[in-house]
Design a protein around this nucleic acid. Structure first.
Lengths: 228, 228
DNA sequence: TAACGAACTAGCCAAATGGCTAGGTAGGGG
DNA sequence: CCCCTACCTAGCCATTTGGCTAGTTCGTTA
């Protein structure tokens, strides 16, 4: 946005590479402090705000208009909200790049995050200290950064027939949650005030979407996809 | 405990509270850096070593004989190994206190960790920055520190009939893993080279131990207990 | 040695599940 | 207006499951 302004500045007097302003979003203090330490170790990076909730992320981006938002998708109870926030930020603030920093590695989540405009996806577990700085720099230069293991996941997804993993409907997720509690179809029908047939219908659809054939597998896949 | 000793020391010459030597064990760099930052913010704490694997923890404790070991139980593929490490450290090095710092909150894990000698259990998600320093100090003074939510979990476990949550056998876990993959008992029997009856036997036992009644629930509970 | 836990096997039966076909409704977007 | 999606319902039938009882073997521990 102020790219024009910058090009007006005489070369000699240009800021010695203006510092990259970063907003960090993670509900975990330890991670926030760790990120700040690692990033500010390199000069040129400044963490200008921290957020611990979805709303706080939006506020912080609104207020600071940072160059990069580093965000953990899991910032509250509503697990799918993180993806929506990514979409909102990349839609509304074109100059703000988004780097997702997750602890779980689910194909569906990665693909969805990228599809909604994320510029990078790193996995907390496997990331090295210097990869963070490099990643942020690379993202600023327009690259897309995929952490170790993430790239192959995306490739796999591209190779498989279902380009964008079909996502479960709200109703299907509700049913699966009840299945995970060990309820029978009849019991689920009772608590959801719908017919047992409908429960089976939703489970059939969920099975197809997840590529599962047994309810135990449905629960497992939905869990590891972070949908529960 | 050493209150007597202290009262012997002339007030003026007393050591300015000898620094607490800490070993941090976590496979995640960000967490390690964050912990170090937060702890060394307070004077009196020194992180003398970091470990990223079970073996490295044992080595580090061996070499440094720290006052406190802060450890994430999930340091590798073998999820139950963390508990064994806690037991080993508290058994062999009586002067080293152990503070477990986990990201998941499972009744079974908490209870097992404490039973094996852990002096504290905090949850990464909910811990506040100052709680860490306070917690380490408290542990050193012989207290047992339970983070927010952890205490009630333990209380609940004490109230319930099964004082120490029965833990699943290796075999049972193997079977459950296959169930999570969506295999039928017959298929599991085939891949494990044992009878279908034995599969059912293991699942019955696992059901009882986990308080589940359906295989989908078994998978869910085993997952959220971090056993898979 | 006796007791114990873990692993293993067998058979029975009611209930639950998976896999299918064949519908109906309401709302949104081209 | 028609198409598409989400949501809802019904019935059929083979297979799987949950829950039980009743055993054997093996290695460890008391």
């Amino acid at each position: 946005m102020d790219r024009e302004t910058r090009s007006d500045v005489p070369l000699g007097r240009r800021m010695p590479q203006a510092t990259t302003r970063i907003v960090v979003a993670d509900r975990n203090v330890i991670t926030r402090v760790g990120l700040r330490s690692i990033l500010e170790r390199n000069t040129g990076f400044a963490v200008v705000a921290e957020a611990t909730s979805y709303d706080a992320v939006l506020d912080a981006v609104d207020e600071h208009g940072p160059d990069v938002l580093i965000i953990d998708l899991d910032l509250g109870d509503d697990t799918t909200r993180g993806l929506k926030v990514v979409e909102e930020v990349t839609d509304r603030y074109e100059s703000t790049k988004v780097l997702v920093l997750s602890n779980t590695l689910s194909e569906m989540i990665v693909v969805e995050a990228l599809r909604r405009g994320a510029n990078g996806y790193l996995c907390k577990e496997s990331v090295k200290a210097d990869e963070l700085g490099h990643g942020v720099k690379a993202i600023q230069e327009g690259e897309t950064v995929l952490g170790k293991g993430v790239g192959s996941l995306v490739a796999h997804s591209l190779g498989s027939s279902r380009l964008h993993a079909e996502h479960l409907t709200d109703r299907e997720i509700d049913v699966i949650k009840n299945v995970a509690q060990g309820l029978s179809n009849k019991q689920i029908a009772a608590v959801m005030f719908i017919s047992e047939s409908t429960i089976k219908f939703h489970l059939q659809n969920a099975s197809r979407k997840l590529g599962a054939h047994r309810r135990a597998e449905i629960v497992h896949r939905a869990t590891s996809a972070g949908l529960l």
